[in-house]
């Protein structure tokens, strides 16, 4: 565990907490893509199957349980408790366009053709593109609330910090995982446009509004 990896995990945790707090305190999930949240829940479910087969550390297990619980709690808030505030008219991304290619690719390019490895690989590919419905929603409405953009910034920072962690681990321990790294780069690149808008607008106190 190095500082970049820890920073990445904490940024991820922060993003999840920001989202839950936003929905809970405003009693509304307006502006949040339920489709992206479904994909994140699917991602964690597929990836953390090893929770029952492999013990790594208390930290590792606790974080997995927290991520899973938070993902399903978010879905509950969006699709049950505050369903009336869910902006489904703007959340029109077709999930099968992301799930099917991720599943197909996981079956072809993986470390080992076993259920747990293919599911892990599927989760890596799916996570890389899981934010697309959310970004699509922001581009459709042309704007995002500040709290939503803080959430997106924390979520994007997480994988960016993981990349630094992978570079560090490659030089310090010779460790590398090509699948995770390439997918992580794709995932981070998807956030670049958003990062630019966040730094140039949101941090200067303006609302995130896309140029017309």
């Amino acid at each position: 565990m190095n500082i970049f990896r820890l920073g990445g995990d904490l940024a991820h945790l922060l993003a999840i907490i920001i989202l839950l707090l936003k929905i809970w305190t405003t009693r509304s999930c307006a502006g949040i893509s339920g489709k992206s949240q479904i994909l994140f829940a699917l991602t964690f479910t597929a990836r953390y199957l090893d929770l029952f087969t492999n013990f790594v550390s208390v930290y590792n297990s606790v974080m997995k349980v927290v991520y899973l619980a938070a993902a399903y709690a978010t879905l509950y808030l969006m699709y049950v408790k505050f369903k009336a505030t869910y902006d489904h008219n703007h959340d029109t991304f077709r999930l099968e366009f992301l799930i099917l290619p991720a599943a197909g690719l996981a079956l072809i390019i993986n470390h080992e053709f076993s259920i747990i490895e293919v599911m892990w690989t599927f989760s890596i590919y799916l996570e890389a593109v899981a934010i697309l419905p959310q970004l699509f929603m922001v581009s459709k409405t042309g704007e995002a609330e500040s709290i939503t953009s803080h959430y997106l910034f924390a979520l994007g920072s997480y994988r960016a910090l993981y990349i630094v962690n992978w570079v560090y681990r490659y030089y310090s321990e010779g460790f590398y995982d090509m699948i995770a790294t390439l997918a992580g780069v794709v995932q981070t690149v998807l956030y670049c446009d958003f990062f630019y808008l966040y730094i140039t607008k949101v941090l200067k106190g303006k609302k995130l509004q896309l140029p017309a």
């Binding site: 995990d9 991820h12 090893d50 087969t53 492999n54 991520y67 080992e112 747990i116 490895e117």
Partner: peptide, 10 residues
């Protein structure tokens, strides 16, 4: 390598 790959990252 037949051992199960240990994935220590989240």
């Amino acid at each position: 390598e037949l051992t199960v790959r240990i994935k220590d990252e989240l």
